[in-house]
């Protein structure tokens, strides 16, 4: 199953590539694909503030850059704060007539570690202050850059190098932090989840995020074959299955109103998603049952919020 779009719609994606070939991401990297779509959606009038992490390292190894838009990396936990400064500086200079009055789209980019964990405070501050920017979290569900350590975005049951499976452990014991809900709690105009398996949906969401006045948060799901211990050719397929099994529902929240982006008549069996992944290989039926229950509960909560919106 693919998205309900015309077969030939692939060509309708903006053709300009602003994230260059020759970047050093692993084979089959999901986040690299997310960046490619992001810049297709935004075009050249974009300024990026990138947190330390995989996408920073693989795109900016001196003397070469993959970026076709102005880009800055300062540190790990502060992408939202750096973006705040870029937005404020650009705004002041335009108002004072020092630069042409053409507003660029300012984007902060960070992984799940740089967002859910170490960058959460800076993110909250920037959302609360109302800067006109997009925050893009590419979620590959662990600290991949440092060697697959668990983050608070790592799902229940997944084995990482700091939440290993063992005789007394089934892997990650905690549940994935609800990033979108944190965004919604700031009463910002636009929050969305997205997936690299659904590029049209993702591109449309990025465009919406750019169009709103004020902060927008996009949480894009982007598998990591290296960290998930999966074949590199499964990246898109797993991202799609995460949506279809209810692991990662796609929805948007516009001015507090929830809307499901991909309606699923039924959820596919969770095993379809778990089985190909080395990080879940150790899971027993009992643990999978707990995971399934939790995933269903969370999925239904989102469904209820979307339905409440339609009543």
């Amino acid at each position: 199953m693919i998205e309900p779009f015309n077969v030939y719609a692939a060509r309708l994606l903006p053709s300009q590539e602003l994230f260059a070939q020759g970047h050093r991401a692993c084979q089959g990297c999901g986040p690299a694909l997310a960046l490619r779509y992001l810049l297709k959606a935004l075009g050249p009038e974009t300024i990026v503030a990138n947190a330390t992490g995989c996408m920073e390292i693989i795109s900016s190894s001196w003397p070469e850059t993959a970026w076709g838009v102005p880009w800055i990396h300062v540190a790990f936990e502060n992408a939202a704060a750096v973006a705040s400064g870029v937005e404020a500086g650009s705004k002041a200079l335009r108002r004072k007539g020092r630069i042409p009055d053409k507003k660029p789209t300012v984007v902060a980019i960070a992984g799940d570690g740089g967002t859910f964990d170490i960058g959460l405070q800076a993110l909250s501050g920037a959302l609360e202050r109302g800067h006109d920017f997009i925050y893009l979290c590419y979620d590959n569900e662990a600290y991949m850059n440092t060697g697959i350590q668990r983050s608070s975005g790592t799902p229940f049951g997944a084995a990482t190098t700091t939440s290993p499976a063992g005789s007394k452990s089934f892997g990650q014991k905690t549940w994935k932090k609800d990033l979108a809900a944190i965004g919604v709690a700031h009463h910002i105009p636009y929050v969305a989840t997205a997936s690299i398996a659904y590029p049209f949906d993702f591109v449309e969401k990025v465009k919406k995020a750019a169009a709103v006045e004020g902060p927008a948060l996009i949480h894009v799901f982007a598998p990591c074959p290296t960290g998930w211990r999966t074949p590199s050719n499964l990246t898109v397929r797993l991202a799609r299955l995460a949506v279809q099994t209810g692991m990662f529902p796609l929805y948007e929240v516009e001015n507090g109103k929830y809307h499901m982006s991909v309606d699923l008549p039924f959820l596919k069996p969770l095993d379809d998603y778990l089985k190909p992944q080395g990080r879940y290989r150790h899971l027993t039926k009992d643990v999978i049952a707990v995971l399934k229950k939790g995933i269903d509960q969370r999925y239904n909560e989102i469904l209820e919020k979307c339905e409440a919106n339609h009543e």
Binding site: I72, N78, A83, G85, G89, A122
Partner: peptide, 28 residues
């Protein structure tokens, strides 16, 4: 004073925002 006053949530973010602002070309 015609300036953007950014009331950040920490000094870490203060210096980070200053980096972003200065990199955008603004006197910071």
């Amino acid at each position: 004073l015609d300036a953007e006053f950014v009331p950040v949530e920490s000094e870490h973010s203060a210096m980070s925002a200053c980096c972003g602002s200065s990199a955008s070309g603004a006197r910071t």
